[in-house]
Each structure stands twice: as C-alpha cells, then as structure tokens.
Design a binder for these strands. Structure first.
Lengths: 192, 192
DNA sequence: TTTATTCTATCTACTAGTAGGTAGGTAATT
DNA sequence: AATTACCTACCTACTAGTAGATAGAATAAA
C-alpha cells in the first residue's frame, strides 16, 4: 500500500472547473466559486493557473483526455458499432443525470466571447469526436451493418449537433426522456 | 405620408438586445454595450427596462413574436411542407450569415444561471416551435408526403436539437456548410 | 549529517475595472 | 401640472488579477 499521496490541488481545480463549465458556462463561474468549493483562496488558484484563459485551456485539454479515454475504452470493449454508439451516448446521458451538459456544447455556445486559445482547444475536442464517429459510421456502412445515406462525416457532425442540442434542451425542460428520444431517432435513422 | 415617427428607443433597445443575445450570450452583454451601440446612457435603458431580467424577458417575448410571424408567414405562403421546412431552416441560415445563432439556443445553454422568468419565456418559444413542427410532420406523414418513423413530436424536438447544435457548431467552425449539410440530412431522414 | 539555499504552494492584502443598479435633475411634451 | 424620457453622478458587489510574505519540502553544499 502506498503512502498517502500528497493533495493534488491543481487537479482538483481542473476537476472543479470542468464541473462548473458543465453546469454553468465560462462567463458564469469565477475563481471565487472554485475557491469556495475547494476551500482555498483565489490567489492559490492564480498560482496554479495565472489567468482564467489558461485555466480554461487546461480544463478543455483535460476534457479532451476524458473523451479520448472514452473512445479508447469503447474500442477496447467491443467491435459492435451499435454497442459503441450506445455507450458513447450513455456518456452524455450520465452528465444529464448530474445536471451537467457537454463542456464542448457550453463553450460552443459562448464561442464569440471566448479567448481564442480556448476556442482552439474546443475545436480539437469536436474534431476528435467527428473523426471517430465518421470512421465508425463509414466502416459500419461498408460492412452493411448500417444503412444511412450521405457522407459519413456530415452524419457524424449532425449526430454531435443533435446530441449537443438535445442535451441543452433536455436540461432546460428538466426531462431526460427528451434526450433519450432523440438518441432513439438518431440510431433509427442510421438503420435505413 | 405620415409625419416623422418619434424615435422608438424602447424598440431599438429590444432589437439591439436580441442581436447581442444572438451573437454573444446573456452573461456576455451588458447595459453598457447597448448604451454604446445606441448612443444613450445606461440609466436611459434602466428607465425603459428597470432590470436586466426584465430586459431579457421582454426580448424573448419579442423573439417569440418573430417566430410566430415566421410560422404564420409559412402557412400563408404555401401548403407544401417541404417548402415550409426549407423556409423555416432558411430563417436560421440567415442568422448564421449575420454571425448570429438562435437566441433560444443561446439562452438554453445558459439556463442554469438565467433568471427563472427568462427560462419560462424561452421554453414558450420552443414549445411553440415544437407544436408547429410536430403538427406539420404528422399531417405530412398521414398524407404520405413524408416517411419518417416514430412520434412526430419527438422528431420535431430532435429537429430543433439538431438545428440548435448545428448553428452553434457552424458558427464556431466558421463554416455555414456544416449547417446546410445537417439540414440536408434532416430532410433526407424525413423521406424514408 | 547538518546547514544553507532554493523551490513550491499557500496565504494576506490589495487593485482597477466593470457589472447592474439608484437617486436626483432637467427638458420636452401632454 | 403631470408625465415622459433622457441625463449626471454615484453606489455596491464582484471580477480577474497583483505584490509581498511565509512555511514546508526539496536540494545542494559543507
């Protein structure tokens, strides 16, 4: 058994920031929120992240890692594209159950007032997901497992558009069924 | 010919607010922005709208009217549901061309930090649109013009989810094609 | 091994700027 | 005279951020 690890303040700050981004928005949380949640002073946060921009950039990078971990886990877990999609959608459903939505969706909605460096990282997340989904869709259609028409990448983008939109609406209407219904339609439209 | 109409400061404030909401977000514009754009002082805005919450509520109500006007115009213009949908989607495409997105989508993304009264008005807008689309879809399928499967209202919600998501992503990627591709898929998936 | 120095990570105290908002004043209109 | 619609001047609260201090840990030197 290892000795007690030293507290990871930096990591806790990032984790808290991601939660705040998933529940609120970039402009709706402040260093003061984090300091109260973690019981440290604002200047301690500034020590680890000298500006809010840097904090957000690092947070989005961490989010990218979480997405990367999810996608790798899907590929290690199964080769069945339907199961992969199911688990992929489930990742977002679990966010909803915690009253969060996708950090990417939040930042996308605020993009016109975001520091550019944050936008750049956000775009990377989406492109990673688009690539993954487009590849999955293409292979599945080539194998005759799926029957959708049109360009796989456009379909991938449209799936993520639907997911982001459905997450936001589902949260506003306080109705998870709204999200799961949308997922059913997305899946059904892939079958034809 | 009428005499010069008196300046409609209240209306100009509302119009400017809607533009700011469509380009930024609730938390990313301030009375100061409006005062600079219109060349009036903040307190003059406060005179017409004593609080930001009231300003937002009135703005969303005005947006509801714009949507209502759009939907009525569609119904007066044609009975062809494909043309109606095309024109409906075009309304949002024109927003993109002005570097705006749907006010409803913006507010939905910020809902966790909005005054409740603003949320209530936003929900009304969406329900209006869901009702309209669900009705259009149901009639069109009953008439054999459309071939989608599943509940028309769920399909309507999913269409709006896709539109909101695609608007946000299209704006972020600075690529209108992203939006128009999504629209193509939405329409195509209604044909089966 | 002990001591000195450097590094890390937190703190207190403070800043400039901006947000939403208020109170009182004034000119024009009714 | 009352109302409307604008103004100046100001307020509190909060934001992101800064400077300096300090304690503990790690490293280097004797």
């Amino acid at each position: 058994m290892d000795a007690p690890t030293k507290p990871d303040t930096r990591g806790e700050i990032l984790k808290t920031t991601l939660q705040l981004l998933g529940r609120r928005s970039y402009h709706s949380f402040s260093y003061n929120d984090i300091s109260q949640i973690l019981g440290i002073k604002k200047s301690s946060i500034h020590y680890h992240f000298p500006s809010k921009e840097i904090l957000a950039v690092e947070s989005v990078k961490k989010y990218y890692e979480k997405i990367e971990y999810l996608l790798n886990k899907l590929d290690n877990f199964t080769t069945d594209p339907w199961v992969k999609l199911d688990e992929f959608f489930n990742f977002f459903k679990i966010l909803l159950e915690r009253n969060e939505v996708c950090v990417g969706g939040i930042l996308t909605a605020e993009v016109s007032t975001l520091p550019n460096s944050v936008t750049v990282e956000t775009i990377k997340v989406f492109n990673r997901v688009f690539d993954y989904l487009a590849n999955l869709l293409k292979i599945s259609r080539d194998n005759g497992i799926m029957g959708f028409s049109g360009d796989p990448r456009s379909r991938a983008v449209m799936i993520m558009s639907s997911i982001e939109g459905a997450l936001l609406l589902s949260r506003m209407f306080n109705n998870i069924q709204l999200f799961t219904d949308a997922i059913q339609i997305i899946i059904r439209d892939l079958c034809i």
